[in-house]
């Protein structure tokens, strides 16, 4: 048992080293091209310049302000989508009537490019937080409903039937079997859609905003401050990476029994 655990730890460290290695490669190439003046500074700032830019943003007080503003919008907009889409997805997967009622309109809405809806949302909601929530909601909600209903529909029918022959009523089959059995897949869908939420947030902030990381990037472009654009991108990337780790960790906490949580306990 101990030896097994040591082997897993060793494997884990190896994978961590590989991940680090890929970042080092990217950083080296970046340094080579920028410090080596292979690409003009206007197009590719040096890593040092980007660090300086981040420090400047910190001194101006906008580093955390803008990051938090973006983080807040993503979280609220995405949570709105989650709260509505999980029950709706379950309903669509379990009721033919609900599918007939909601299915086609959701499919239709899913193909509307959210970017094209930005002008309308600005018209309706202005350029404040609400407009960002709405864009993120529209970008993730329709996809999430379908993903959740797919997950629920793919739960093994025999699992429900087994529960029925153990005396579970229809309602108990839903509550005690269908719901927990869907959780790992739902966790996956959440992890994927929060990534999309970031994309839509930046889109919304690029078009119309007065704070946030997307806004900062747009403003930097006007002044040709490429170092700030890179700073913004790197911060968004780091936030995405952290979000992903958070969801992987959550998967282990919420559904430790799932094959996806990995590792025999």
């Amino acid at each position: 048992m101990l030896r097994e655990r040591a082997a897993i730890a060793k494997q884990f460290n190896k994978h961590r080293r590989l991940a680090l290695f890929s970042f080092i490669i990217i950083a080296s190439l970046w340094s080579l091209f920028s410090y080596g003046k292979l690409v003009g500074e206007l197009f590719l700032p040096t890593p040092g310049a980007v660090v300086v830019a981040i420090n400047e943003m910190y001194n101006e007080g906008i580093l955390f302000e803008y990051t938090l503003a973006s983080l807040y919008r993503v979280t609220v907009g995405w949570l709105m989508a989650v709260i509505v889409s999980i029950p709706l997805g379950i309903l669509i997967a379990t009721s033919k009537n609900a599918e007939a009622l909601f299915g086609p309109s959701i499919e239709f809405a899913r193909y509307l490019p959210v970017v094209a809806l930005v002008p309308l949302t600005v018209l309706y909601f202005g350029i404040g937080d609400m407009q960002k929530f709405v864009i993120i909601f529209l970008g993730t909600f329709f996809q999430l409903v379908l993903m959740v209903s797919d997950v629920v529909a793919n739960v093994s029918r025999d699992l429900m039937r087994a529960a029925a022959t153990l005396g579970a009523s229809k309602w108990q089959q839903y509550r005690l079997v269908l719901l927990p059995a869907s959780l790992p897949g739902i966790m996956d869908s959440l992890r994927i859609t929060i990534g999309w939420a970031w994309t839509y947030l930046v889109v919304a902030e690029l078009v119309a905003a007065n704070s946030g990381l997307g806004y900062m990037i747009l403003k930097a472009q006007r002044f040709l401050a490429t170092d700030r654009i890179f700073a913004g991108l790197i911060i968004i990337g780091i936030l995405g990476l952290l979000t992903d780790y958070f969801f992987k960790w959550m998967t282990k906490v919420v559904v430790p029994w799932s094959e996806k949580a990995g590792g025999k306990s």
Partner: peptide, 24 residues
């Protein structure tokens, strides 16, 4: 009923699985 496919509830331990019907 016992099925050909594995129908243990993966989120429940062996004991909790066996107690599923009793709990209901």
């Amino acid at each position: 009923m016992v099925f050909q496919s594995y129908t243990l509830f993966p989120w429940l331990t062996v004991q909790k699985n066996v107690e599923f019907g009793l709990k209901i």
